[in-house]
Design a protein around this nucleic acid. Structure first.
Lengths: 160, 160
DNA sequence: CAGGTTTTGTTCAAAGCTGCACGATCCGGC
DNA sequence: GCCGGATCGTGCAGCTTTGAACAAAACCTG
């Protein structure tokens, strides 16, 4: 039976899936310990802080976060309750609304970022040499690009 | 401000976090489409199928899955309802119980595995050359090992 | 510009998950 | 043996996530 995946690739797959799970868990725990933010919270803050006007349309934000629309609605309302973001109607499309970073949100991000980045360094990056970093970048850039493309084309029934 | 993470490492981190998120989403969707199993379901089946007697103590299973105890309880009951596993009291420790793979569970795994592995291949592995596979294995093996160690030592207050 | 179609975001119910408190058992010293 | 503390798994309340259904606005086409 062609069960795919030769043994070296299977080993790679297993190592990857376990370690990435653990890494995610660890980073989220670190984040929560020293910032009262969840990983999604943090990610939203980063994206908004980098956006022009520190605001993004819900849809745009959702697709960058890889969140379902309903999940984003929930996420943003939750952050809104805590004062990290606010929501404003979109001027040029009355259906839409945009999430806007508040001063408190920016502050929370500024406080959290150093700890979070340190956490990424100590758990992951410090242990990698430059060649490994380059390899990861190459591999995951390609992967991301490919997955982004395949999802779009499956949503858009233009291909058939 | 020493915000850690030089720019090449930051790029690596961003590529990694986005692509791994997308990959996970895609694999889970594929799995659900052609097997009616979630990723956790599948993982449980794999671990049980490889265990001696196709059974594992709840705690052992939880730690391999990186699940909280209560999550595992929930997960296993759900799979039990669907007939994929059963639960038996542990012979030599009356507190414990073990999850046991059922015939239906094994069958479900046998049916799902080829599709899932194909999915892993097409989305990830087929695009990697041998050097990249070797690099991933090395990196994530080390990472997993390190994280496994750090979690144990933080649980065990022996270090201080 | 009327009609149908698409896009945008929300809502709701059901399922999943977390953290904590708990009952049961086991283990170590006395 | 017996008490105190550790370990094992479950139960529960509350939060998060999903998927489908939906209302509102925009778009498109004749």
């Amino acid at each position: 039976m062609t069960e795919s995946l030769d043994s070296t690739r299977e080993a790679a797959w297993r190592a990857y899936i376990e370690a990435s799970q653990r890494l995610y868990t660890q980073l989220e725990e670190d984040l929560r310990v020293d910032s009262d933010l969840s990983f999604p919270d943090y990610h939203v803050l980063v994206l908004l802080s980098e956006a022009p006007g520190q605001r993004l349309r819900m849809g745009e934000l959702a697709s960058r976060l890889i969140f379902s629309p309903s999940r984003l609605t929930y996420q943003v309302s939750s952050m809104q309750r805590r004062g990290l973001v606010s929501k404003e109607p979109c001027p040029d499309d009355r259906r839409g609304s945009e999430a806007v970073l508040t001063a408190a949100g920016l502050l929370a991000l500024r406080e959290a970022a150093p700890h979070h980045l340190a956490s990424v360094r100590t758990h992951l990056m410090d242990d990698l040499d430059d060649a490994e970093v380059a390899c990861l970048t190459r591999v995951f850039d390609r992967l991301g690009e490919r997955l982004r493309a395949s999802r779009v084309s499956s949503t858009t029934p233009a291909s058939r």
